[in-house]
Design a binder for these strands. Structure first.
Lengths: 347, 347
DNA sequence: GATTTTTAGGCGAACGTTCGCCCTATTTAG
DNA sequence: CTAAATAGGGCGAACGTTCGCCTAAAAATC
């Protein structure tokens, strides 16, 4: 392989100084058309590309955005983050940036890892996802004065730029939809109180119930941590309630919880949809393979990714960003798991 | 934020030249213990980290490995590549490298994209996945003289380093397992002939049948492209065969195909496992939620990722790599979808 | 026609490393 | 006791850009 082509090679061929070539290529200087053409011809003939290491050193930036996600090592299934990542990669490339992936092993000091990447100048900024209450990364990165934009929010102590999907509005939509179908006794399977996302989604349920003037039986709010197993395990105790307290609809935090619930409902011989309506969250691809089709909420994940990157790069360029906090609304996808409530039916 | 700390800052504090600091930190020079301690103390106090842009410029390398995967934009579900990516990220970091992600939009010139990253010095090498017959990336990168290691093989025209899972051995294992259970009429749902992975897996089936001296009815080999829908759609035509030609077991190329098959079998009122045994491939996480449990093949994906990275980095360092072509065997995971063949049963 | 402004392009410096070579003082060998 | 070897550390240069400033010629102004 031939040696690397540099600015000097181009300059020699075009008969100008290499600094002039640099300026012409970056559009910072106008020159006579002849010189311009000579330069571009030389670039073409030599197949010149600027060396990023040199540019990075000079401009003190890496044009790299750090990103990391923490999967459960024994359970790879996260279509939402998968789509988010892909969106982020494309958006970054369009703006001349790339995504640098780094690991976040459990047990290792998170902040340390992020700090290392900043101090070595590896990355210009970070994309965060999977935030929880009091996420240590936000204050740490603020202290290091490094830009970040998150997919998701944390506690409101520190103001920081993010794009998030409004889980409250989502569950509110689901609950309203059920009420429109005539359901009044609506239960919810939700995540532990320590989950910010869960708490927020729950509040959408509470809001919808309150607005509609529907009473909430404390037994209708069940908390759990796993996905399918939680739905499968928690549903029987809802179905065991006296008939006048038994919910006719179950809202869940996630599609997989909903699948567990549906399974439990079916094992009772109840009809999903009519007897017990069920909703999920995320519209994960595999729900396609289950019947009845699951009514669920679709997050505008691709859009989130695009906006996160655009916002982060604006921040890096010191452009002022209009809104630093964006909240997008999920879309209700209605399928067969939610049907009009018809009390005179089976059983 | 204070200014960046450089070698010169450390040197000034330690009372030596900055080049000496560099050499001590990289272990290239021995110095008196006192000087050594002074240097390390200064590093500690100033929290010094070497600047990677400068290092990259000087060493003419980026310590970045390029990786890209082409997902179906409207269908995010690829647990295997998800695990592979995570493995690769961790392995790279352990060896002082990072993964750079870049997009591969359809319709765009693949080779162009890879070339750009090489000529600008953005990456030192590439990790490839999702290879197909005559993959244009392999010869293109060879021509550019840039190291690559692939997860997967392509046609054997160009010898190149790869780590792959032996699909032939995998399907062979599945077929043998079915034979051990007494099955003799075994069908296979496979991918189009244009699929290298599919062709290879099919040959495992052919090998097992031949070794066992079992005849193959041409109707037992069905080809299709989608996943669940293919399994669901193609199975009835197998079940419609005259009883003496009807398969008692169906081997498939993928778990999702198997799920479609199971669904079709169940709709016929046949018992999955006993009447019709079914096997999948990949052991994707969601099979957990289906009953009966699916017998399938688990790829050692994590291991593949580790080896790919180790091999690539060895190549970059010009260390000689013993074996440039590694083939790992998948593990058969036996669940309820394969049971002993018992012909006197139902129907 | 003399002076000022603009234009085209050159030049030096710096970004923060790594690496080879050089020098001096000490140790070892003869 | 002298000559050679070694250890400790310094110094200059280079990696390939970008950026500000400078100069000479051409153009515009009075």
């Amino acid at each position: 392989m031939s040696k690397k082509v540099t600015l000097k090679d181009v300059a020699r061929r075009a008969g100008v100084s290499y600094q002039t070539v640099s300026k012409v290529l970056s559009g910072q200087k106008r020159v006579t058309p002849e010189v311009r053409d000579r330069i571009y011809a030389a670039v073409e003939e030599l197949d010149y590309r600027p060396n990023v290491a040199a540019r990075n050193l000079r401009t003190q930036s890496s044009y790299l955005l750090g990103y990391s996600w923490q999967p459960d090592r024994h359970y790879y299934f996260n279509p939402v983050l998968e789509e988010f990542q892909q969106s982020v990669v494309e958006a970054a490339e369009e703006l001349g940036y790339h995504i640098l992936l780094f690991p976040q092993r459990q047990g290792q000091d998170l902040v340390e890892i992020y700090q290392e990447l900043v101090l070595t100048g590896r990355v210009d900024g970070f994309i965060l996802s999977g935030l929880e209450y009091y996420d240590p990364r936000v204050p740490a990165l603020n202290r290091l004065n490094v830009p970040l934009v998150a997919f998701g929010r944390t506690d409101s102590d520190h103001a920081f730029p993010y794009v998030d999907v409004d889980g409250q509005a989502g569950i509110y939509l689901a609950a309203r939809h059920l009420m429109d179908l005539g359901h009044e006794r609506i239960a919810i399977l939700c995540w532990p109180e320590t989950s910010r996302v869960g708490t927020e989604r729950l509040s959408g349920y509470l809001q919808a119930m309150e607005e509609a003037g529907l009473p909430i039986d404390p037994a209708w709010i069940v908390r759990g941590e796993t996905e399918y197993d939680f739905g499968y395990g928690a549903t029987p105790q809802l179905l065991d309630l006296p008939l006048d307290r038994r919910p006719t609809a179950i809202v869940t935090m996630h599609d997989l919880i909903a699948l567990g619930t549906i399974s439990a409902v079916q094992e009772r011989g109840l009809r999903v949809g009519h007897d017990i309506a069920v909703t999920g969250f995320d519209n994960v691809p595999v729900v396609r393979y289950f019947r009845p089709g699951l009514t669920t909420l679709q997050q505008p994940v691709w859009d989130v990714g695009q906006r996160v990157v655009q916002m982060l790069i604006s921040l890096l360029k010191n452009e002022d960003v209009e809104t630093q906090q964006v909240l997008l609304t999920p879309k209700l996808v209605i399928r067969e798991s939610t049907q009009p409530y018809s009390p005179e039916d089976t059983e």
